[in-house]
Design a protein around this nucleic acid. Structure first.
Lengths: 111, 111
DNA sequence: GTAGGAGGCGTTATGTTATATCATTGATAT
DNA sequence: ATATCAATGATATAACATAACGCCTCCTAC
């Protein structure tokens, strides 16, 4: 969901302004309960309640379905290792866009 | 640079409105001459004139310096392979945030 | 050559995402 | 009780992006 979609939802249950929503999202992200999809400027509730490790995401470009991909230590290390010597890596953003099974089927049908 | 930073620059050399800039950026991106940094909502000129292959980026969180990281076929395949069976992967977004050497030194000095 | 239409470009307007800033409330120590 | 500071609430605006329209050019058919 976008931050403003969230805002619309919570308005019904009380007051809410953009900064309130963003503050809540930031807190939840610190706790690993919400993740941000950089390539979509959107947010998603963690499917596991809370994640500690780093995650990648697979995102359907048609229906926006998102699948979390936990990154093992080896994968994390490998990804961090891609950074040039000049930049000490700290954080990984990995998002894989594609088409999910359902949308691919729908596409075939319409074609 | 952000799209609006570009806009400010080109205003001096004539007319420019946001859609003009975004259209130009989109064309240049198709040609591989400009890349978009999803995690920053910003754009960068390709350091190589033009890239055909997929790229990752390393970005200094302090000074916004960006280093392009060409992804070899093996790395691309490995990254695409992280996608779950449910989603057929098409595109990779990989951005590594960190601190560059210069900013790390500056930090040490001030500490 | 000129009427009609497709596509590109400039422009206006607006939509979407995010944060700076100030006010208010509430807890804490004295 | 009151000064102080932190957390929350609210206003306003900044930053990023695109929808939609009109004009102009260029191509084509006649």
């Amino acid at each position: 969901m976008s931050a403003y979609a969230i805002l619309d939802r919570v308005r019904k249950s009380g007051i809410a302004h953009p900064p309130t929503v963003y503050r809540a999202l930031n807190d939840l992200m610190k706790k690993g309960m919400v993740h941000r999809l950089e390539s979509r400027s959107a947010f998603i509730a963690c499917g596991h309640g809370a994640c500690d490790g780093r995650l990648a995401f697979a995102i359907c470009r048609a229906c926006d379905k998102v699948v979390e991909i936990p990154l093992g230590k080896k994968e994390q290390a490998r990804l961090l290792g891609l950074a040039p010597a000049e930049i000490t890596p700290e954080q990984i953003t990995l998002e894989i866009a594609g088409v999910c099974e359902a949308c691919r089927s729908a596409q075939d049908t319409s074609a």
